[in-house]
């Protein structure tokens, strides 16, 4: 039984090691080069896009085992270790990444310009959420006056 536990623990440790390697790669996004693209040359002008990046990840592993219990007559419980001892292990992980352009940097001989980029979709979603909260407030006020 000890060999079984060690074998399962070894597999669990291997999985944890691989997950840590993925986390290390995730931390690699924390570099200034990650948010700025390579310059795109158009004639005498260079264009660089600046983006915002968010990356998150987490994982967990567990391992457990227990002896088989046999209850005698009465209230006494005697633990008996046998081949039927239960062993279990498991792991879970998840992650999310998102990126969004924030601005465009235009470099020419005349100078440098930074033009912001607006995400109309996200702004619209936030606007409709605000509209919903206005309707909620109106409904609550109407209910309060009754």
């Amino acid at each position: 039984m000890v060999e079984k536990i060690e074998k399962i623990a070894g597999v669990s440790r291997e999985n944890e090691k691989q997950s840590l390697e993925v986390l290390e790669k995730l931390i690699g996004t924390a570099r200034p080069e990650s948010v700025f693209s390579k310059p795109i040359k158009v004639g005498d002008t260079q264009i660089i896009t600046a983006s915002e990046i968010q990356v998150g990840m987490g994982f967990g592993f567990g391992l457990g085992s227990g002896p088989q219990f046999i209850s005698n007559m009465g209230d006494e419980i005697t633990p008996v270790e046998s081949e039927e001892t239960g062993i279990g292990s498991g792991g879970v992980g998840g992650g999310r990444s998102s990126g969004r352009p924030v601005a465009v940097i235009t470099i020419s001989e005349e100078g440098v310009e930074v033009e912001p980029i607006l995400d109309i979709t996200k702004i619209s979603l936030a606007f409709f959420t605000m509209l919903g909260s206005i309707f909620f407030l109106g409904a609550q006020m109407k209910k309060g006056y009754k």
Binding site: S19, L23, L26, I27, T29, A30, R31, P32, S34, V35, F36, D44, Q46, I48, A50, S51, E52, I53, Q54, V55, G56, M57, G58, F59, G60, V102, A103, I105, I107, S108, E109, V112
Partner: peptide, 29 residues
């Protein structure tokens, strides 16, 4: 490197939170 006689340095800020088994990175210009 840029054409002309000036140099452009884009700058960014990284906020990184991490613990045992999890990590979160926010990189913004």
């Amino acid at each position: 490197s840029t054409p002309g006689d000036f140099q452009v340095n884009p700058q960014s800020r990284v906020i990184q939170l991490s613990g045992s088994g999890w990590s979160w990175v926010w990189n913004q210009p």
